[in-house]
Amino acid sequence: MRSRKLAVVLTLALCLGGALAIAAKVMNVSVRDGQVRDTPSFLGKIVGKASYGQSVDVGGEQGDWIKVTLSGGVSGWMHRTALTTSKVALSGGAGAAGSVSGKEMALAGKGFSAEVEADYRKSHGGNYAAVDAMERVRYDAAALLAFLGQGDVKPQGGAK
């Protein structure tokens, strides 16, 4: 029977180990301007910013939100979809250069990047000015929720 107990203990330890590995992991920012908020909600105050490719320490999660700590010590919540467990490649000259490790920078300049876009534009053209103008139209979460409210649109569960 001892060996059976041992098996149970071992499996428990393995399961816990797995869970801890998930909880104590590092993730990478997968959006250009990652926002770190003081509460797990788009309405939370922005307490920090994290750039594409930057690593953050994961300290827990709540629903779709992940508790993170930045290298400078700032901690807060980031939406799950702004983070990835994969290593993300950085394009050459990305703003995040100062905040990433050498290993991550080794991937710089690879893939479909600003450089490839510039090369493509030379031969194919395209109305990039209109795309740039389009990208400048941004509303923050609070403004969007206010907009919904003014139109009597009520998100499920309220605007948490």
Binding site: S30, F112, S113, V116, H124, A130
Partner: peptide, 22 residues
């Protein structure tokens, strides 16, 4: 979704947009 990272997806999207807007 795994094939391209978010930045590559972004650059593909920009050029699709620029082509549509041509």
């Amino acid at each position: 979704a795994e094939d391209f990272n978010p930045e590559q997806e972004y650059y593909i999207g920009r050029t699709v947009g620029a082509s549509l807007l041509a």
